[in-house]
Design a binder for these strands. Structure first.
Lengths: 219, 219
DNA sequence: CCAAAAGTGTTAGAGATACACCCATGA
DNA sequence: TCATGGGTGTATCTCTAACACTTTTGG
């Protein structure tokens, strides 16, 4: 199981961030326009070849930084695609990661005509089988929302429960009852009150929370 | 993202099957003894290099058949490991699948001194980081048991609910209430009564069931 | 005072769990 | 007939969803 193979290995990443759309936060992701064949001119997931001396995770992070200038709060392997007819002439095995970046960070994307954010609900035609890949990533994100606290990775250090709820609403695509959401989150113990209040709003000032310090479980 | 890389790609598989241990079914998996360096003589997961003209899934199935002679009822990608220091001198990316084989099939394993079944609870020291890999696979199996019907893949076409329950008990490592298990399974609609009864037992003959025909959702 | 969202209380329903009890068979 | 697991009934508990209601701010 150690023979060399004429197989190219690349790492790509599906990057999620929240951006305003129609006055409400909506799930977006950055794409890069391909500048060479195959699929020249099409939008694609940021990615590139695996360097011999870096781990898969490092490759994902490096590519992510190189193409978008972003530093993800969450980074996790999604799936490895390796169908024989995936596009180019030679055999390509593509290891896909998915990442979450903070809302405020998502606005600091590198300024490049070949990089742009798109709402997940309205993506352009993508190169290769990247449509399918994005679909998987969205599915995984929704699932993990239910039993982990990855949603914190999309918010700044301090946040209100309403902000956290809006994140969940944007990802799940449906409204959540504020009262029940509050109780459910507080019961999990994943958030802690900072003691501060958010002022400047024209209603009762909401309490600020932060993610409870705990051992991060890498997946 | 299409440059050739000096990286070897291999596919390995964690194969689960049920075998008797202390009169009760227990989760087992087959291992192969390494016949070359590195880790010569150690037990390892069956695997081998990816051939240029086969899909990842095909590679897993081929390797599985070649080393154990088995044909899995369930086969699913688990994770891709690619740390730089994973063992050999050269860089190796290892795509791991996990599989389930039927109990009756598991007894027909190829007769080879370098292939043997071990109970998951008492594995020998494994080559590379295969201990960790097996741990992940077990975790995934337990999780999927709750919300899919993969457990059927470990049983013959027709089975009693007691057999199905024993499968779950063996994997989860704890007893389940027969009455509640029955109702829960029947409520999901994943099983159908064949109309037959299992005779020869010295108590009320249990009804036979089969897995409800339905679109298989590949993961 | 009024609008708006924060935050609390309460009730009804669904699903899980524990366990009592009857049923059908082989020995 | 008895032991054994198959199979049914049922009370309890927990969790969730729905929604009424009180609180606290800015305008």
């Amino acid at each position: 199981m150690t023979e060399a193979q004429p197989v190219a290995v690349a790492v790509s990443t599906v990057i999620f961030g929240l951006r305003e759309a129609d006055g409400e936060p909506a799930l977006h992701l950055p794409l890069v326009r391909r500048v060479r064949e195959p699929h020249l001119g099409r939008w694609a997931l940021p990615g590139g070849p695996l360097a011999p001396e870096e781990s898969l995770r490092e490759a994902a992070r490096r590519n992510l930084a190189a193409t978008t200038g972003l530093d993800p709060r969450h980074l996790e392997q999604l799936y490895t695609f390796g169908a024989v007819d995936r596009g180019g002439a030679e055999r390509l095995v593509s290891i896909v990661y998915w990442a979450l970046v903070r809302t405020d960070e998502a606005d600091r994307t590198l300024d490049d005509v070949n990089v742009a954010w798109f709402p997940v609900e309205a993506l352009p035609p993508l190169a290769f089988d990247h449509d399918e890949v994005v679909g998987w990533a969205v599915k995984r994100l929704k699932a993990k929302l239910e039993y982990t606290r990855i949603s914190h990775a999309l918010l700044p250090e301090e946040f209100t429960l309403a902000q956290l709820r809006e994140v969940h609403e944007a990802i799940l695509g449906r409204r959540l009852d504020p009262a029940n959401f509050r109780r459910r989150v507080e019961a999990t113990g994943t958030v802690t009150r900072t003691g501060g209040l958010q002022s400047g709003v024209r209603h009762r000032p909401p309490a600020l929370y932060r993610s409870t310090a705990r051992q991060e479980l890498l997946t």
